[in-house]
Simulated scan of single mutants.
Amino acid sequence: MARIPYADPEAPENREAAAYIVASRKKLGHLHRMLLNSPPVAKGWIDLYDAIRWKTELSGKLRELAMCQVAAINGAKYEWAAHAPIALKEGATQAQLDALPDWSTQGGLFDAAETAALALCDAMTRHVHVPEVIFAQVKAALPPREVVELVVTVAGYNCVSRVLEALEINGEDPLS
């Protein structure tokens, strides 16, 4: 069970933010219901993550592999359950998903851009600071815009997993 109650989307103070979320995501999931405890945060969250997920040039496969790797490292089961199916739809293989988080020992499963992205993801998630050799691999694999988009994706989904885990948000929790 989550550590605090999920917000009521029908409460007068939450209706506008709830409608904003539904307009973007078509539904109110557990994370969104929790975020409604602070309507301004909920709306800003949607704007940021809509930009990361749907307004970047970073390939969907690379984006979702990074999101899944963050979830795997951080033990964020809700995040993994949400993004693993999307990763498959974006072109990741089940073998690639199964190799996370120990991807670096699985030779041949990932191309150069994926290897660079996963190394960046590991460094940012596990250590915050990214060694120059890893950043150089990312710069060699991606244009500057996509480098920024990848970094923000990894940072953003570390935020997601930390919110999910700190509040113990579980997709199986009853919402009412």
Rank of each mutant, 00 (worst) to 15 (best):
K89Y: 00
A71M: 09
H83Q: 08
C68S: 06
L65R: 09
R63N: 14
G60N: 12
E64G: 10
K89T: 01
T56I: 11
A81P: 04
I86T: 01
G75L: 11
A92G: 01
R63A: 06
Q69W: 12
G75M: 03
A82E: 04
T56R: 06
A87P: 01
Q69K: 02
L88M: 05
Y78V: 11
E79W: 06
K61Q: 13
I86M: 04
L58G: 09
K89W: 00
A66T: 08
L65P: 04
E90M: 10
A81F: 06
M67S: 08
A87Q: 02
K61Y: 15
K77S: 06
A71Y: 10
E79K: 10
A72D: 12
A66V: 06
C68M: 06
G75E: 14
G60Q: 09
Q69P: 08
A84N: 01
A84L: 01
T56E: 08
G60P: 13
I86L: 03
A66D: 13
K77I: 10
A87F: 00
A72F: 05
E90P: 06
E79S: 13
K61S: 09
A76N: 05
V70D: 10
L88H: 07
I73C: 10
G60I: 10
C68G: 03
A71P: 10
N74P: 04
E90Y: 09
L62I: 08
L65K: 08
E57N: 15
T56W: 12
W80H: 04
S59K: 07
I73M: 03
E64K: 04
Y78D: 10
